[in-house]
Amino acid sequence: MKLLNSSTVSRNSRLKLGAIIVALAVLIILPLCIESDYIKHLLIMVCIGTILGMTFSMLYSAGLITLGAAAFYAVGAYTSTMLVTSLGLSFWAALPLTIIISAVLSLGFGAIFVRNAGVAFVIITLIFVQVIVIAAGQIEFLGGWGGIMNIPRPDSLGPVEFVSKRDCYYLILAILLLIVVIYNAIYSSRIGRAWRAIKLSPNLAGTLGINAYRYRLLAFVIGSTTAALAGCFYAHYFQNITPGAFAGWLSIYVQLYAVLGGLEFYILGPAIGSVIMTFVPEYLRVVKEIEPIITGLLLLIIILFFPGGILGTIKNPPDFNLTQLKSRLNRMRISKAQGDKS
């Protein structure tokens, strides 16, 4: 019995490994098969969206709903830009510095914000984005509302120059995969289990000796630092940043990625959601003015009828219960027939 079990497990894990290798191969070969630079641009945006969605999922796994993904995304973008343009550092020196600076900042702000949970936390993070955006616009040193132009691309690494879309895609893919590996490790560690316990019930987790505040703060710091990393890449890929690019509804789109893909899938969910929310509006460009209405309807349909998101629906197909439906229809028919008779 035991033997059989372990063989199934190893077969499963071997299959899983195979699937991962196939997915990786597809992701790596993809830009070579595609001619269009525009599609490559969209793929890069998908990767950035995935990273931001994953930060949202990480906070959600600890029972916090953030609307502030864009805040540290902006902090990362601005920090890295200032380090490169003002201090003349190389991109590769600015990257770790950005991570350290945003980790320190997020620890400071997080210590204040995480004291609140629930609705208050949602709204505070939303306001925090506005504060960051307005502050960046007001400070002349950061380029004001006009932002900063002509940010250099990432410096070349040996023979690889990050000028073409293909090379930029490989860079962001590498960053994404690194984050996936780290996140995966965290989720399967003690920390990940503590987060899930806190999400189910903070009080219960407290009785088990889990300090909800500290663990949530940890989630906030890791999530914010990851968003800053994405922002750092964004600034050097876009080559110009304006405060307006981080304002408003960007953070809400980030949540959509996570919800659409499936909330219980902390890594794959945001990826699927990001692919959909990036490519579907592209298909809908033909309908121009009514595109937001269709996107809104699509969102409502998925939330109302497939609450597990797309991955959740694949994993647990909704039980439409055809027999029940049939019997109900039959009953209706019978009652109608009876009504006709009388």
Binding site: L64, G118, L200, V259, E289, I290, I293, L299, L300
Partner: peptide, 27 residues
Amino acid sequence: TTFSYRLLLSAMASVGLMMILQQGTLL
């Protein structure tokens, strides 16, 4: 159902509603 899940899903549904109302009024 956890409170955060309820809050998140209803907030997201209201975002969908927002998109439809916004563009509908515009049209």
